[in-house]
């Protein structure tokens, strides 16, 4: 009984993945591209940077990068805390 259940679940999962591979959204054709268009057309003029990715990371989405830097800080603090020298 259990084996049949797992077999059915496995078949459903495989079918789902195959279907997802077949009916995948075509690559390079975004469904909605207003925001992409805006960044590509205006980033050079607004931020004066050639690298649009950097202008998004540090200017348009700067708050996200602040969180990323905080995650790095937390990781380093965690490593320093776990590997600290303990007496005795």
């Amino acid at each position: 009984m259990k084996r049949w259940l797992f077999g059915a679940a496995f078949l459903v999962l495989v079918g789902y993945l195959i279907g997802g591979g077949i009916w995948l959204h075509p690559f390079g054709v975004p469904a909605r591209d207003e925001m992409d268009r805006y960044f590509i057309e205006n980033a050079q003029a607004e931020v004066a940077a050639n690298n649009v990715v950097t202008s998004i990371v540090f200017d348009y989405r700067g708050f996200d990068t602040l969180g990323e830097a905080t995650v790095l800080l937390a990781a380093v603090v965690g490593v320093a805390l776990v590997l600290r020298k303990v007496k005795g």
Partner: peptide
């Protein structure tokens, strides 16, 4: 160019 971006790059 790019204002604060190079300075932020150095900070990060």
């Amino acid at each position: 160019t790019a204002g604060t971006l190079p300075l932020m790059n150095w900070a990060v």
